[in-house]
Amino acid sequence: MGNEFLPLLYSFHFYLFGLLAIAAALAFVTRKSPVAAAMWLITTMFALAALYVMMDAQFIGVMQVLVYAGAIMVVFVFVVMLLNLGHPSEISDIRGKWGRLIAGFLGIALLAEILALTRDPMDLRLVVPVIPATVNGTGGIIGGVAGPLFREYLLAFELTSILLLIAIAGAVVLGRKRSAADAR
C-alpha cells in the first residue's frame, strides 16, 4: 500500500464493522424476546459479511448474506413464529433517543460514503490492491475458492451433499405431526 490514506480508511471501517458486530452480538445475548435476538444476530452477520469483503473474501461475504442472514435466520424466525414465542411488547419497541441518533448517524454516514464513492470514478488512492493469495490466475475471486473445493476437497464436498440429504430427511421425519405416528 503506497499511500497513507488508504490504510487509515481501511482500518476505520474494519474497526467500525468489528465494533458493530460485537455490539450487536452483545445486544443479541441480552434480549429476552427470540425475535429481537434474531434481528440482532442478523445485524452481527451483516457486519461480519462486511469484514469478509474487507479481507478479500468477497464470495464468502455474499454467501454469508445469502445463506446465513437470508436462509438460516429465516428458518429461525419462522420457527419462533410457528411456536408463537415472541413477546409482542418487546418486538415493537423503538429505541430511546440515543439509539435512534446513533442508528441514524451511522446509516446516513455510510450512505453518503457510498454515494461519494460511486458518483465519481474511483479515486486511485481508494482502490484496494488485489491480494494474489486469494485470486489465482484467471479464475477471479470465485476461482480461488472453487479450485481447492473441487480438487483437494472434492470428497468432502460430495459427502456434504449426503449430509444435506440426511438433514432434509431428518427434518421432515422430526417435523411430522405426531398423529401420523400414532395412527400406525
Partner: peptide, 15 residues
C-alpha cells in the same frame, strides 16, 4: 463447509 453444516444443523435442530 461450515456454512453447509450449519444449515443442516439448523434444519435438524429446529425440527
Amino acid at each position: 463447509f461450515v456454512m453447509t453444516v450449519a444449515a443442516a444443523e439448523a434444519a435438524v435442530g429446529l425440527a
